[in-house]
Write a protein that binds this DNA or RNA. Structure first.
Length: 527
DNA sequence: AAATCCCGCCAAATG
DNA sequence: CATTTGGCGGGATTT
């Protein structure tokens, strides 16, 4: 497996990659449905996203990624060696991919065929899956069938982010991060692990610690009775979690290692977990690359006492449509039926229920159904909501979680035992997009070991965010923002120097009180 | 040396 | 059994 002469199609194009390269990507008009004109104005005024403008953006954005490669001086001949690693990066690939579709498709249901994409972009299938998975986690696409995905662009992005933020708060991610940052200094282990997450697990499933869930928008990605293979979803879930972290952390900056730790489940990367940690980080980079292509995050560095750490900063939307209540619904019986019905969408073939009675299949189908239920038109949207008025402050995105009232047990009743104890929660939304379904582990809703009721105690010490590669095209020069950490309750002893200097494109001097009192129990305990 | 992260083997999940 | 998906981690590249 030496350096096999790479078979790079269109080597000439490579040569042009000075800046023009970007053009190459966009040159392909691709499919017809390119209805550019119609733009979604209702999408916020703050959003510079427009089908066309976006393309430009993408292109310009692409250059910085590619730019760095002038070291080569391909005098004349097209030495393959020109193709450096960056030319094959996931991020670039993702750019190419994104450039093919409009941000806000007009009802035009762009269909995506993995084979075609892989072929046209000239990459291995595997890579496409990576991209699709994270895009799917944000509902930018949804799997529609075996080798197909449906493009939604950013039409649902706001809603998705709103939900993710909610769930993120619900899980006290903000606090967990603080917790980790706090003790991130000492890499040596002095049995201070007084806290074992023992009490958390009750399910007894082998994958018990798989404390999370997958958030989806049923109304959109209906069908595809496949998307639900519990075990995996790893990348998808990881991606969502990662995004959640940004949405709940105050300075919207998340360092790689903190994120990795949270994603692993428990901080303190014990010797053994070192590998797991490394793997996690690898994945995080993958995800980050596509999020970067989406212009949702940007790479930065966090300089703490101990030195610089790679991190990412959220540069995506900050405010989303508020999600009223978070109510659950779910009719045991009805659900089952609905599911059964919609499970197979084969219009004619009537492929019939080729479902083998194997328990697994069954369990799976039921699980699938659970989400179906949510999207079902007749779904019981008991949004009576007694918004538990825990209102936040100023007009910002106020998200209320309404603890579902009674009948909890019932809804979970039909959950197959072996099926991971995920509880679907229905989140009715206004935009008529249909309810959201959030699957959460019952265990997580309960007391969380490291969840201190107290507000975050900003454990960021003094950190400095610096621009990565230095040349940040966009304006907004750096500016030191003295981030005022929240009150430091007596709980955390030391922790003094709390001036966070953000030396980067800081969009605003945030000073929002965290206020993360999640009503914990909007979930139904599994019987 | 540390940060990135490409590549693709190979095991599940599906068909 | 053939494919489609997609964990996972060695190790090549960059920084």
């Amino acid at each position: 497996m030496r350096s096999q002469a790479e078979i790079y199609i269109r080597p000439k194009i490579r040569l042009i990659k000075k800046r023009p390269l970007s053009l190459v990507c966009v040159l392909r008009p691709t499919m017809g449905p390119f209805t550019t004109p119609k733009k979604r104005m209702e999408v916020t005024s703050v959003d510079p996203w427009t089908p066309t403008s976006n393309l430009k953006m993408l292109i310009s954005a692409a250059s910085p990624e590619i730019r760095n490669r002038e070291k080569e001086l391909c005098n004349g001949e097209e030495s393959e060696k020109l193709i450096s690693r960056k030319d094959k990066s996931l991020g670039l690939l993702c750019h190419k991919f994104l450039a093919r579709y409009p941000d806000y498709p007009d009802l035009a249901l762009c269909d995506i065929c993995l084979d075609d994409v892989a072929t046209e972009l000239n990459v291995e299938r595997r890579r496409i899956y990576d991209i699709m998975n994270v895009l799917e986690s944000l509902h930018i696409v949804s799997r529609s069938a075996k080798n197909r995905y449906t493009w939604h662009g950013r039409t649902k992005l706001s809603e998705t982010l709103a939900i993710l933020k909610q769930v993120g708060e619900e899980h006290r991610y903000g606090q967990q991060m603080q917790h980790i940052r706090q003790r991130g200094l000492d890499r040596e282990f002095d049995g201070e692990e007084k806290e074992n997450e023992v009490a958390v697990d009750v399910d007894g499933g082998e994958q018990s610690q798989r404390e999370l869930f997958f958030v989806e928008l049923p109304g959109v990605e209906f069908k595809a009775a496949s998307v639900n293979s519990r075990k995996d979803k790893s990348l998808r879930v990881m991606s969502q979690k990662f995004v959640m972290l940004f949405l709940v952390s105050n300075p919207r900056v998340v360092s790689l290692d903190v994120a990795a730790k949270i994603l692993i489940g428990e901080d303190h990367v014990s010797d053994q977990d070192k590998n797991k940690f490394k793997t996690k980080v690898r994945r995080l980079y993958d995800i980050a690359n596509v999020l970067r292509s989406l212009k949702l995050i940007e790479k930065v560095h966090v300089t703490e006492d101990r030195g610089r750490k790679p991190a990412f900063e959220w540069i995506g939307p900050e405010e989303f449509p508020q999600v009223k209540d978070l109510t659950e619904a779910l009719e045991p019986c009805a659900s089952v039926e609905n599911c059964a019905k919609n499970l197979f969408s084969s219009p004619r073939g009537k492929r019939s229920f080729t479902r083998h009675p194997s328990l697994i299949k069954l369990a799976k189908s039921i699980q699938d159904d659970r989400r179906k239920i949510n999207s079902a038109p007749s779904s019981p949207v008991r949004s009576s909501s007694h918004s538990m008025e825990q209102s936040k402050a100023p007009g910002a995105n106020t998200i209320h979680l309404t603890p579902l009232a009674g009948q909890p047990a019932g809804s979970v009743a039909f959950l197959p035992a072996q099926c991971s104890p995920l509880i679907p929660v229905l989140l009715p939304q206004q935009r008529g997009g249909g309810p959201y379904a959030v699957y959460v582990h019952p265990s997580s809703l309960r007391s969380n070991p490291l969840s201190r009721p107290q507000p975050s105690s900003l454990a960021v010490r003094s950190m400095t965010f610096e621009d990565k590669t230095g040349q940040s095209p966009s304006a907004a020069r750096s500016q030191s923002v003295s981030k005022e950490p929240d009150v430091s309750p007596a709980v955390f002893k030391r922790q003094r120097s709390d001036s966070v200097k953000i030396k980067k494109t800081q969009h605003q001097s945030v000073s929002v009180p965290v206020q993360t009192l999640v009503p914990a129990g909007y979930l139904i305990p599994i019987s």
